[in-house]
Write a protein that binds this DNA or RNA. Structure first.
Lengths: 156, 156
DNA sequence: GATCCGCTGTACAGGTTGCACAGTGATCCG
DNA sequence: CGGATCACTGTGCAACCTGTACAGCGGATC
């Protein structure tokens, strides 16, 4: 999948996204073309999805994060519900999960009171029967992928 | 927090991260210095966390995603457990949540069998009493922040 | 032994960045 | 109302980086 050099490239660009390809090649001790080729390949194979800006919802005022488990009406399936949820900006992510007929959503809101409003929107979505929510008190391990990269880079 | 122009800047860089500041200023119809200043400000205030590469765990072979709810032993608190979990690469994210004494983790694995191994690691962590896991069958709404940006940009 | 593939080192033109400056309009405040 | 502050504009410049191409080299494959 990826090798140790790929891992080091990803690590470097994660730590300092502003470095260019040339500077990266200097730091890693390889030719510029190599770094470029590796980046191209990883982008092509999908390992690197992109270099878009990472937005912090908290800095935008959405300081409350919650996980909402949905119970769906059996008929109709998941997709229409997902489409409905996609219309709610505060629904940041949604998965269908193993518990039959259920979904798990990640939701943000400006306050606990605002969360109530968002949950009401979710429950009002066609096909949603019940919603159980759990509020995140602290993000003990912020989303990370570097350990995976290191693990994948070591073994191959 | 952010205004409409900030929103358009974020949107543009999300859609096409490779465009430079100059090209962005041309497309948005503003001066280059403005785009630069906005980006600097958003980076300074934390709205934009960074421009690091987004890694797709699935492309690295970690095709299984699961959400694991932990029940912790009362004594000891959350932090030591979080520290222990941080040592497991497959634990991608962890939150303490409202259910007293509990945590919610996002976990990836190479297969369902591999997931078992990861969960065993988690349960073996000092302070963890029980783990209940839910497997993600489909990512109906992939992690997104653009709707928030639009919402925040419109209103201010 | 021949071939393929990836890495290296080099070269070049064109574009971009970082920085600085002065001018302008809007907003705020005494 | 005058004055100050602030953000945006438009411009300029040197330095740097990117995209691309090419030839040489070593390892792996068959």
């Amino acid at each position: 999948m990826i090798d140790a050099l790929d891992g080091r490239i990803i690590e470097l660009f994660t730590a300092e996204p502003r470095v260019g390809v040339l500077e990266a090649s200097r730091r890693l001790g390889v030719a510029r073309g190599t770094v470029q080729a590796r980046l191209d390949r990883m982008a092509r194979t999908g390992v690197i999805r992109g270099f878009g800006p990472e937005i912090d919802p908290a800095a935008l005022g959405y300081t409350v994060t919650a996980f909402v488990t949905l119970q769906l009406r059996q008929a109709g399936g998941h997709d229409p519900v997902a489409a409905g949820l996609a219309g709610i900006p505060e629904v940041i992510e949604a998965h269908t999960i193993t518990s039959p007929g259920d979904m798990l959503c990640r939701v943000v809101a400006r306050s606990n009171a605002d969360l109530q409003r968002v949950i009401d929107l979710i429950v009002a979505t066609e096909g949603v029967e019940r919603a159980a929510s759990v509020i995140s008190l602290a993000n003990q391990i912020p989303a990370r992928t570097l350990p995976l990269v290191r693990a994948a880079g070591r073994e191959s």
